[in-house]
């Protein structure tokens, strides 16, 4: 093939293929929105797109359901978890990487093992423990286990990042009279900011979408989070897929929008070596 022709054809072929794959890949999400936009007469039509399009379902479900409170519950649990994970994991990584705390590597190995513990094996004892604490049906009952489960991954990422930071920086700070706390706060935290962004965004996604523990800990309707309510709606709107898919779309939307807004920082953190490939 002539090089000039190849130069023109290649991108067209490549983007054509990628766009086609992407369109197929997103069919379930497109289908979700599409059914949400249908009239009752078209709701059970087994096609991807159907006419006419109506926003009636969205209006109805927004009017009938207290979605605001559900989002607020998820937001409280998620933000508290993210803040605590970032705080606890950055402190422990700082102690291991910069302060070289005796026993640090043993602690690292122990916490690392936590990454290999399937949540399925912890739900029963956690449920019993939270009952003893009186933390069933409380935000704390979700937040603290989430933090404990989230710290190891964050720690591994942050420690790797700190290990790659020149020691000079910390030594210079110490020479200038910084205490370990000041060194952590004013030197380490700013340096690992890209990794912190990555860890925080990933923890946000994981926590917002966590299902198993939320199912067990939250039984009061007014405390339920975004992952728990869709089950109820699937019963409530069994005969009305249009309304069901409208509410599912609304439930999925905030995190999708948020991810699109922060994806640049997320990928930047990833590429900066937050996770070494």
């Amino acid at each position: 093939m002539a090089p000039a022709l190849k130069r023109v054809l290649r991108p067209i072929l490549l983007h054509g293929t990628l766009m086609l794959v992407l369109a197929l890949w997103l069919v379930p999400l497109i289908y979700m929105v599409s059914v949400g936009l249908r009239t009752p007469a078209q709701a059970f039509n087994p096609v991807l797109f159907a006419w006419p399009v109506t926003f009636a379902n969205f209006v109805t479900v927004l009017r009938d359901n207290p979605l605001g409170g559900i989002f607020l519950n998820s937001l409280i649990v998620t933000v508290a978890t993210v803040v605590l994970v970032v705080l606890v994991a950055s402190m422990v990584s700082f102690a291991m990487s910069v302060l070289r705390l005796p026993g640090g590597s043993a602690l690292y190995a122990v916490l690392l093992t936590t990454l290999m513990v399937p949540l399925a094996s912890l739900v029963l004892p956690l449920a019993i423990l939270l009952k003893t604490f009186g933390w069933v049906n409380s935000y704390a009952g979700l937040i603290f286990p989430y933090v404990a489960l989230g710290v190891p991954f964050a720690m591994v990422v942050l420690k790797a990042f700190l290990d790659d930071t020149p020691r000079m920086l910390f030594e210079a700070a110490t020479v200038d009279g910084c205490t370990p706390w000041q060194c952590y706060r004013h030197v380490a935290l700013p340096v690992i900011r890209p990794a912190l962004a990555f860890v925080a965004i990933w923890q946000f996604i994981v926590t917002w979408n966590e299902f198993f523990l939320a199912l067990i800990v939250l039984t009061k309707p007014e405390l339920k989070t975004v992952t728990i309510v869709p089950m109820q709606y699937s019963g409530l709107y069994m005969a009305n897929p249009g309304a069901l898919f409208a509410i599912l779309t609304l439930i999925a939307l905030p995190l999708i929008v948020l991810y699109v807004l922060v994806q640049r920082a997320f990928v930047a953190g990833l590429l900066a070596g937050a996770v070494k490939g």
Partner: peptide, 25 residues
């Protein structure tokens, strides 16, 4: 950036939503 984000969307879609949509599919 567009491709990276779009192919990642299912990961950030709540698993409950994903499951119920696939039940209908």
């Amino acid at each position: 950036g567009f491709y990276r984000t779009m192919f990642f969307l299912p990961v950030v879609t709540s698993v409950s939503v994903v499951s119920l949509v696939w039940v209908q599919i």
